[in-house]
Amino acid sequence: MNTSTLTPFPFGSPPLRDPAWVGRVAWLSVLVVLLWPLTVATEFKPWVLLEADNLRVSAQFISSFWPLAHSSEFLLMVARDTWRTVAMATVGVTLALVIAIPLTLLNTRVLSVSALSGRMARVPFLVRQAVRWLLIVLRSIPELVWALVFVRVVGLGPTAGVLAIALTYGGMLGKVYGEILESSGTQPTETLLRNGSGRLQAFFYGLLPTSAAELTSYTVYRWECAIRSSVVLGFVGAGGLGQQLDNSMKMFNGGEVASMLLVFVALVALADRVSAGLRKALG
């Protein structure tokens, strides 16, 4: 291009500042101003951790981790409760699937026949809205609250934990499954519906093969979360490793706490490997 054809800058000299600069600084200041009250509300004072007294307490607790508890009686108890924790997480996630899968199928917009040609019809729209709200209610109540409720109904023990995980995780899985399905390639599914297939047929032949790997890895990740969450539920009497961890913490038995934490690390690592393997198999 010939430079002489360019219109000269009206002021005759290059601009001194980037005009976007003011906006950037303004938004950063707004962010800081908004964050400040949040740190006050959460009493966020990290320097407290470094005061001499607190350092001593922390050091004591952490040093008590060694030696790890390893008496055969303790290990047997840990093995039994690990099994119970894994069972609680697995049964909980399985029940969550029983809740989430039908709700996802009802909720997914891609599987709507009326939405194929313009707007979704009224009744299916209302059903989808109702399902969406049901999922919000299910997952907005923390599993801890469900567990406290169920401990009163069915008594202390893993059943309360299983039910709590099932309800909250059903809500989470239903939401995320729907998002995974709608963000995957939907053209195969739409074409099947346009050619006269049923909704479920279109799901099994179009949507599922497109997003099977994502759905599986998310489910395994949720199983991993359920293991962690069963620890917290153990603290309120839902049994399993969490309850033992609670007991050991209350008795300041660092060796036992450390041993059980190692079991959790192993379980999470296992979930990670299983997920990677499944993704490879389905990818």
Partner: peptide
């Protein structure tokens, strides 16, 4: 009816 769109509607996996 059978509609074959220009982009083949086949799930990759």
């Amino acid at each position: 009816l059978f509609l074959a769109p220009q982009v083949p509607p086949l799930p990759p996996r």
